[in-house]
Design a protein around this nucleic acid. Structure first.
Lengths: 252, 252
DNA sequence: GCATGTTTTGCCTGTTCATGCAAGAAACAG
DNA sequence: CTGTTTCTTGCATGAACAGGCAAAACATGC
């Protein structure tokens, strides 16, 4: 029994049952529980499952996304970034906001007394805005992708094409001075490109760990960024690269 | 039984019923009440529920987001209706679900292991479905109307026109044997009409207080109703009127 | 063929985690 | 106020865990 074979069987069972038990796998594969634990550790490291005491469960990227409070990853930093990003807003502006936990934090941070028109393809952002009476909310529908928490596809693109915005809050997966803005998903990148095209300015708020990283799909060049909101500990050299390409830097 | 499994089951029951009892969970899971209490404490700490004496209830933020708890009116009756309505579903069907608290209850009651394609213009329904991995969710975008909790307008109509469904769960504002199905808002009625047109069958679940009432905007005739889900105390005479026009009556 | 390095695996060791039990505190009901 | 139920806290126990180690299997280079 090859290691890779076991990994595939584990993935299969996770897809079918949503969970696996270490002991049960060990007896099924005819190996020690230690070996199974090692397998699970590796798969968890690769993000293909979530390790729990006694076994593993299917990874729930979205659960972490919507319940961003629980997942707790950099929650405080995102809240700080959100407050700074909201400072860029002017009343009566129109905005595009796409997905991502940072953008959800921004949506929550928008003051209740500010009149805005906001179009979003993120259910998390939309939910955060439903009880803002002064926000005209436009939901950009389409095929919902659980992993992203957003709607994508032809319908979404068509809806974006009919709108224009002063600012686009771009939830960035990767940000690199030369590779520009990048996303993990092709359909997601398409929507971001459409929003960027129909916006007067792009705002990106990123946590430090995303600075100077790149994902597969290119969304826009670094020179398209109007405002860049970062934490105070962001590396100055990287920021200078973006600044030289026209981005205003804002510290949170 | 993994700890995580119990947590998920607790979340599920909370989403469906709005409450859980410590003792009942303990016997269902086959663990001590102490363990259940620990589970509840952890979930409460993560903000996923609100702890109360004897068990737990759905947390306030979530309830507010879906606006179901807020309108706390007839919650139990709606939960009962929802469970009965879900009984009409067959795996792999495609559904339209529009807005309303009863429809949100139905969305929450959909079993996690059922494969469905669901198109909705209600943010509450969409939110309730985001963590159902087997549900292909299509969000019908458009102008969001806070009072309705749904998207309406030309964009919504265009999106509906491109789709078809086996069943349409119509959130009814008024239901009358001769006036048919009616709504309070003109734009809302338009969307409902479009969904009705593109569906093979219409399902309406109503609380007793809406039976035999009418709102200004007509959506469809009573003869368009395929399934009518009502409480056991619904007046037989009214039901007979609907039944004679082709509706199957289901008691919750 | 032989020596060397790598990978995989099982076992051992100390540590962490989940659970049930017991005792006292708090909340509830009458 | 009193008794009962539910809750928290501390503790003991066994299961699950990570890391280190060594043997076996495998690959690599001479």
């Amino acid at each position: 029994m090859l290691t890779e074979e076991r990994h595939q069987l584990i993935r299969d069972q996770l897809a079918a049952d949503g969970k696996v038990l270490a002991g049960e796998l060990a007896s099924r594969f005819g190996v020690s529980e230690d070996t199974v634990r090692r397998d699970l550790r590796e798969l968890a490291k690769a993000g293909q499952l979530r390790r729990v005491y006694g076994g593993a469960v299917a990874s729930a990227p979205f659960a972490a996304a919507t319940l961003s409070q629980r997942s707790g990853h950099a929650v405080e930093e995102k809240t700080r970034l959100a407050k700074a990003a909201v400072g860029l807003l002017v009343a009566r502006q129109s905005l595009f906001i796409d997905g991502g936990t940072t953008n959800e934090a921004i949506a929550r941070a928008i003051p209740r007394d500010m009149e805005l028109t906001i179009a979003t393809n993120s259910l998390g952002v939309a939910s955060a805005l439903v009880d803002r009476p002064l926000v005209e909310l436009i939901v950009l529908g389409g095929r919902y992708v659980p992993d992203l928490g957003t709607c994508v596809g032809a319908d979404t693109l068509a809806a974006v094409a009919q709108l224009g915005a002063d600012l686009f809050f771009l939830g960035s997966c990767g940000l690199h001075a030369t590779r520009g803005v990048t996303a993990f998903d092709s359909a997601e990148a398409e929507v971001k490109r459409a929003m960027a095209k129909n916006s007067a300015g792009i705002v990106i708020a990123v946590t430090n760990d995303k600075l100077a990283t790149a994902a597969p799909y290119r969304v826009a060049g670094a020179d398209a960024i109007r405002h860049l909101v970062v934490g105070k500990t962001a590396p100055a050299a990287t920021l200078a690269d973006f600044q030289s390409q026209g981005a205003q830097i804002h510290f949170a």
